[in-house]
Design a protein around this nucleic acid. Structure first.
Lengths: 159, 159
DNA sequence: AAGATATGTCAATATGGCTGACATAAACTT
DNA sequence: AAGTTTATGTCAGCCATATTGACATATCTT
């Protein structure tokens, strides 16, 4: 039994998401909002169904949170060009700023943690995390990540 | 920005906890039950306040779940010897069996993921996860983990 | 004895998720 | 053109898990 990793994962993830939680509270948002905004920002033009797939939630659940983000100007939606039924989702500048802020906190934590294990170690972590994920039947976003090793068009801000 | 690790962590943790979730459903339990049972099993003799600290929840939240686990025979509580106000918590054989089952699933996933990175890589993962955790003001369990590097008396079943 | 602490309970509320049902608009198929 | 399917949205009720506030009893400490 790998109790060591099981428990480290619990505490690590708790603190990792805790960074954002504290910040989100000020906006009256929670984790669900963060997730939606994150993926909309990182994968602009996602349709609603894509997001449901990624997050593995129902449209009612998504609707609740998405509506708030739309109403408050963090996300805009556009009708699809090829299929006018679709609603393609994009983060606004306001939304990007918020995602950036949250990701900054999380990145700080990650960089501190990576700081002690060198680039080979960082490689191992990426390999490990990647291998922890089920690869069968990936949603659109995960498929993108798995086929690019994590590098995407939106990674230009990896400064 | 470490978008790569941020996203890998999201999906990895989702799938990691998903293993247990599916199994828990059959018992009419959820994540909260799993967490409680896990720590009670791994750190027998925890008092209620310790558990509140570890899980960072209120006694009302804990009470709901703990009561179910007590009523259904997964956990027993004993009055403290030095302080009769305390309720020390222990997993029953039934409780241990369930934890073992859940941890087995998670361990399989972890071992598969570790299988690709060798023992140096595994070391790096442990160091990384450990460094991802806030070390200030640790609760009783985390303090134990941090000072022993994850090896505890209950690790004899690391077969 | 007075004050502090460990635990437990009641009650109302919040976040985020679910199921079922229904609706409209748009696209596809016949 | 009509019928069928699909993309999205909404209403409603319920659930899991967590919170806050208040209060209570038993036990320990001063």
């Amino acid at each position: 039994m790998r109790w060591d990793i099981i428990e480290l994962l619990f505490f690590a993830y708790r603190d990792f998401v805790g960074d954002a939680d504290n910040e989100l509270e000020a906006f009256g948002f929670g984790r669900a909002h963060h997730r939606v905004l994150h993926f909309v920002h990182r994968y602009p033009g996602l349709k609603v169904a894509d997001l449901l797939d990624v997050l593995r939630i129902t449209k009612q659940s998504l609707g609740r949170v998405l509506k708030q983000l739309l109403d408050e100007g963090y996300i805009v939606q556009r009708t699809g060009n090829n299929d006018r039924r679709q609603r393609l989702l994009y983060a606004t500048a306001k939304g990007e700023a918020l995602v950036g802020r949250l990701a900054g906190l999380q990145t700080d934590r990650i960089n501190r943690a990576l700081g002690g294990i060198g680039s080979d170690g960082a490689d191992s972590v990426r390999k490990f995390l990647r291998a922890m994920i089920d690869h069968d039947d990936p949603d659109k976003v995960l498929a993108t990540i798995l086929e690019t090793g994590g590098a995407t068009a939106k990674d230009k801000d990896k400064a």
